[in-house]
């Protein structure tokens, strides 16, 4: 009772609060200075969609259009044609609309050949809406997205 009263008179509760904030002033800061230091994306990060080839540089996509059906946002427009070399369906048209994509990851789970995967790239800001539309050539994983979105600027 008396202790509580004394605590109140000597503003102990307020001083305790001040001591906490004082302590925080001298602890490590958590801010990441973005353009200089880019946070590493996690293993399963769902960034921009890319089409992958297998180890020997062969096409994996068989234009089955399962991703197109799985996509909730209707991002894909794929057309396939029978390839004479390996007698498999290969995409001749693979239009993908970044401006519709919500990065839910349903397409990469649906893909039977692991040809498409959401990559770790997350920097997709641009002033030009036409850059949010990708054709087959631009969908491959070796396509330079850095140049695509940010011109020749350094990485």
């Amino acid at each position: 009772m008396i202790i509580n009263f004394l605590k109140k008179v000597f503003l102990i509760d307020l001083l305790q609060g001040l001591s906490v904030t004082l302590k925080y002033q001298f602890t490590h800061k958590v801010t990441i200075q973005y353009p200089e230091k880019v946070k590493e994306s996690r293993e399963r990060f769902r960034g921009i969609l890319r089409v992958y080839r297998d180890g020997e540089g062969k096409q994996l996509c068989i234009a089955c259009k399962i991703c197109q059906k799985a996509c909730p946002e209707d991002c894909f427009d794929i057309e396939g044609q029978k390839n004479t070399e390996d007698n498999k369906m290969r995409p001749v048209k693979f239009d993908w609309k970044l401006y519709r994509c919500s990065f839910c990851g349903l397409c990469q789970e649906a893909c039977p050949t692991d040809a498409i995967k959401l990559s770790k790239e997350f920097r997709m800001a641009t002033r030009d809406k036409s850059k949010l539309f990708f054709t087959l050539d631009q969908m491959y994983s070796d396509y330079d997205l850095n140049k695509h979105f940010r011109g020749e600027s350094k990485k």
Binding site: S41, R42, E43, R44, F45, R46, F103, C104, G105, E109
Partner: peptide
């Protein structure tokens, strides 16, 4: 961060199927 490690996204996690 844990969510990102698990499912790949932070806010719109879409964690379960």
């Amino acid at each position: 961060e844990i969510f990102e490690e698990y499912s790949g996204a932070r806010l719109t996690v879409h964690a379960f199927r």
